[in-house]
């Protein structure tokens, strides 16, 4: 009996039926997802570092609890995503290993430094804003465990962007120095944020296949354009200027035109030559190595306890 598994798979996609871990799937679909979900997980984990830098120096307790909660959420989001990736057959340790060896990538944005408190505002507003733009359509992605993880992530992430915008709003209504600090943060984070959507469509060879598989629902350029369009009025409300002199409403397109992205910089950062690549990776590797004795002790304790339980039972 010849049953065409690929045809069954295609029919599920066609009918918007989610693919679940035990379903047959093309090997390339599995690999694409594994790469995307694990990269996404790594980004959440590395993404804690730039903000972790400011937890002890938050200007007041309200800001501090919010930032702590946000960073804790990011750890949680990393864990949801790792567990979704594991359903595709790669172990957690393998994924960590790939991150630590530099084989796996994470979002380039986290290789930029956080120089002032205003960066906490700009990251929440722009970086989380861009992430949300990307993640909302992923709630409908074709792979069940990934879609379910993204629903949780999106539900939790709304506060991340709002607390960031609130920081920007407070600073831009503050002293001239505070407003200048907010403007400086916007200047530094704007271009890296719009690069977060990835290369232009004609330079993104995997996009067509990912859209056919309904992993992605929109192309990089579509999402980037949406993000730029919604962010412009938000900047105006803050009284801040987006650092792009070519930004202009295009009546014909119904969208804003914008300047040329410096893809050379993007490629350099992806290749490991960004301002903080080495520092970020080192922080992760150190955390893993320094935690080894904790992992060993926990394992030893669990063994001892289970032995004791067995003796009592006998």
């Amino acid at each position: 009996m010849e049953i065409n598994l690929e045809k069954l798979f295609d029919e599920k996609l066609e009918n918007e039926i989610k693919i679940e871990p035990k379903d047959w799937m093309p090997e390339k679909y599995r690999k694409t997802l594994l790469r995307q979900i694990s990269q996404h997980a790594h980004s959440e984990i590395v993404g804690m570092l730039p903000e972790g830098n400011w937890i002890t120096r938050a200007p007041n307790l309200r800001r501090k609890v919010a930032l702590l909660a946000k960073v804790q959420d990011e750890a949680g989001h990393g864990l949801y995503l790792y567990s979704a990736a594991e359903t595709l057959g790669m172990s957690r340790d393998e994924m960590f290993n790939d991150l630590h060896s530099g084989k796996a990538k994470y979002s380039s944005i986290f290789n930029y430094p956080t120089l002032t408190w205003a960066d906490m505002g700009a990251i929440g507003w722009l970086v989380d804003g861009a992430a949300i733009m990307n993640q909302v359509p992923l709630c409908r992605t074709s792979y069940g465990p990934y879609a379910r993880a993204m629903v949780r992530v999106c539900k939790e992430e709304s506060f991340h962007q709002r607390q960031g915008y609130e920081i920007m709003l407070t600073l831009s209504k503050g002293t001239p120095e505070q407003k200048a600090m907010a403007q400086d943060a916007l200047n530094r984070w704007w271009w890296p944020s719009i690069m977060m959507f990835g290369p232009n469509d004609d330079n993104s060879p995997n996009t067509a296949q990912s859209m056919k598989w309904k992993i992605k629902r929109f192309s990089n350029d579509e999402l980037r354009q949406k993000f730029i369009d919604v962010t412009i009025p938000q900047a105006e409300l803050l009284g801040l200027t987006i650092p792009d002199k070519d930004l202009k409403w295009n009546e014909e397109r119904g969208h804003n035109d914008f300047g040329t992205i410096n893809w050379d910089e993007f490629n350099q950062v992806v290749a490991g030559n960004g301002p903080c690549n080495k520092q970020r990776l080192k922080a992760r590797v150190d955390a893993w190595n320094k935690g080894e004795w904790v992992r060993e002790a926990a394992t030893a304790f669990a063994e001892k306890r289970s032995k004791r339980k067995n003796t009592q039972a006998a």
Partner: peptide
């Protein structure tokens, strides 16, 4: 008690309510 984990904790201008 951790109300700051919810979006409604942050009061922003009405124009932004879709955020």
């Amino acid at each position: 008690d951790k109300t700051y984990r919810h979006p409604t904790f942050y009061i922003l201008p009405l124009e932004l309510n879709h955020m």
